[in-house]
Amino acid sequence: MTGADIGWWGVPLAILGGAIRVSTPFLFVSLGECLTERSGRINLGLEGTLVFGAMSGYAVAYETNSAWLGVLAAAIAGSMFGLFHGWICKLPRVNDIAIGIALMLFGMGLAFFFGKPYIQPVAPDLPAFEFGAWSSLPQMQAALKVNVLFLVGIVLAIAMAWMFRATRLGLTIRVVGDSTDSARALGINPDLVRLLATGAGGALAGVAGAYLSLYYPGSWNEGISSGQGLMAVALVIFARWNPINCFWAALMFGGAGALGPALQSVGVSQGYYLFYAAPYVLTLVVLVATSSGRGLLASAPGSLSITK
C-alpha cells in the first residue's frame, strides 16, 4: 500500500524533497567555484568537469562495484581538469573564461567518447539516510531520504565559510583573490594558490557529477546534466562568493525546480513550461532586487575577470 492521499500537501513536501535531492550537484559545483573564484580565477568549464565526473564515477563504480570508489574517481578526474585549467591560466595573457568554455567542450567530449559502453550497465547507488523513518507517511519518508553527499556538502559549506573567515589558509586565498600584487608583497605565490584552488574546485565539480550518475537520477547517459554545472557557476555570483549563501542558493534552486512536476501532480497542469522556468525567474528576481547601483560588487574578489 503506497499510503495516504495527501493531495495539496504533496506540493510543499515535493519542494522539500526536491530541494534535498536536486540541490546537491548545485551545492558542490558552486562551493568548488566559490573556492576557485575567491582565489581570483574563474572556471566556466565546470559543466564539462561535472559531466566527466558523472561518467568516470559511474564507470568506476560499475567496474569496482563500489559507489564510493566511483565518487573518489570522479573527484580525482575533476581535480585533473581543475589543475589543467589552473596550469593553463597561470600562463600570461591566457583568458580564463575562454579556456573554461573550451574545457567544458573538452570534458563533455571526453565523457561522451569514453562513456558509450557505460550507458547500458547498472552501477551501484550511493547510500542514503532514512531521516523520515519516524513518519508513517511514505511521502515524508521519501522526502527525507537524504544522501550522504548532501550532508557532506552542508559540512563543507560551513567549513569553507569558517576557513575564509578565520584561518590562515582562507586569508591567503582571499588575499590572492583580491590583489595579486599584495599577495606577492606578502611572499605568497599567487599562481600556486590559484592552481590548488582551481584543482580543488574541479574535484568538487567531479563529485557533483558522481552524485548525478550514482544517486539522483542515478544513471549515466549523455543527457544526465541539464546545465547544472553552468548554472551553479552563475549561482556563485548570486551567492556573493559566500559558501553559506551557496548552500541556500542551491537549496532554493533545487526546491523551485520541484515545483513544476509537483503542481502537475495535483492537477495544476496548464503552462507547465512556465512553472519549469521558476528557478530561473526566481533567481533573476532576487538578483535584481538585491543588487543596487552599479559597478563592482562589494564582496567580489578584486582580481576576478568576470566582475570588472
Binding site: 503506497t2 499510503g3 495516504a4 492521499d5 495527501i6 493531495g7 504533496g10 513536501l13 515535493a14 524533497g17 526536491g18 535531492r21 536536486v22 511514505p138 511521502q139 521519501a142 522526502a143 548525478l212 539522483y216 537520477p217 542515478g218 544513471s219 547517459n221 543527457g223 544526465i224 541539464s226 547544472q228 525546480g257 520541484a258 513544476g260 512536476p261 509537483a262 502537475q264 501532480s265 495535483v266 519549469y276
Partner: peptide, 15 residues
C-alpha cells in the same frame, strides 16, 4: 533526466 526523476517522485507522492 532530472525532471523525469522529479516527475516520477511527484507521482509517487500522490499515491
Amino acid at each position: 533526466a532530472v525532471k523525469e526523476a522529479e516527475a516520477t517522485n511527484a507521482l509517487a507522492d500522490q499515491g
